[in-house]
Design a protein around this nucleic acid. Structure first.
Lengths: 174, 174
DNA sequence: TGAATCCGATTGCAACCGGCAACCGGTTGC
DNA sequence: GCAACCGGTTGCCGGTTGCAATCGGATTCA
């Protein structure tokens, strides 16, 4: 149930180039879009303040606001009010965003191979890459359960495994 | 023979974040870097004028110049003088850039699924994605032969197959 | 010898984007 | 009532980007 049919395609206004790589770069090729999506996928944060403060890189609030708006408009995120707290807004990944998991996996694998990534953070990326498409599918199913169906984050899921491995490395390696 | 060892790592000046995804986005997450690499991989162009004029999107010459310089400095491209023509300069992919093939594959697959990519150009992306890691490895070996060892572009290689499929689609579909 | 052409860029200019810090109105818990 | 917290907004500024014109050198051709 992962392959979209024709009607699943997002209604994006036509650019000049029909090249799929170029279109993806036009949409996500900036300093922050993929970082925001990364934090929504792996960081567990789903609200403005969480995304603002807890990322390692320190995005500015105006940039975060504009990126969230752009990603919502592009159909990669949805906004959800929290009924218990009128001001709290949750951003959830859509199916299109969840299907970016393989892209993230490859980006992470490449970066951990060729760029000076920290060992702890590389471990998550390498685990995910080594797990192959099967692990990716499991992770995507987990994201679907949480972001599309609103289920709680499972304590024994893929993300928990990755985080555990990261924390073990951070504790043991430093 | 594709996994780099420790000494293969590029000497990139340390940023603030050790996250492999963020580092990759910092390096390649702009409007043009991946497009230039795409044209070097799939377009067959290896010189300034070819990259300037033959891409669908129309990059400006100053931006192309600065991207090429950045990619050379980052270790993703190398410059080669043409002995027969002192002004002609060939840009060739390095091993690090060649290993971006899986990233390109996933970006193309995602874009062709979720963005309004043209059918002809999507066909190449989908063929490459459907070929799985085996086709990716074949393509990377082909790129190694051409860009690292200086061999001529094989007429029966992966790129030729993809281009043929694209041309068939362009001719038959329009 | 000279002119046309091609080569990899560079320059000047305007628009835009990102980083920074201060601030906003509304909501919640105490 | 009040401090803390919520998702943002505003203004400022420097760097980056897009765009068009142009550059000096190298090659080709007559």
């Amino acid at each position: 149930m992962t392959g979209p049919t024709r009607t699943d395609r997002l209604p994006v206004p036509p650019g000049k180039s029909g090249c799929p790589i170029n279109l993806t770069v036009e949409l996500l090729g900036d300093r922050w879009s993929l970082v925001v999506l990364r934090d929504l996928m792996f960081g567990g944060h789903r609200r403005f303040r969480g995304l603002l403060g807890n990322s390692v890189e320190g995005i500015a609030s105006n940039v975060l606001a504009s990126r969230l708006a752009k990603l919502v408009e592009a159909g990669l995120l949805t906004r959800h009010d929290d009924p218990s707290h009128r001001q709290k807004i949750e951003y959830r990944l859509t199916e299109a965003a969840i299907q970016l998991v393989p892209v993230m996996t490859e980006l992470g694998a490449w970066g951990s191979r060729w760029l000076p990534a920290s060992r702890e953070l590389s471990i998550r990326a390498e685990l995910l890459a080594r797990g192959g498409p099967e692990l990716g599918e499991r992770f995507m199913d987990e994201l679907r359960a949480v972001h599309l169906e609103g289920r709680p984050q499972p304590a024994d899921g893929v993300l928990a495994e990755l985080t555990l491995a990261y924390e073990r490395a951070a504790a043991g390696g430093e």
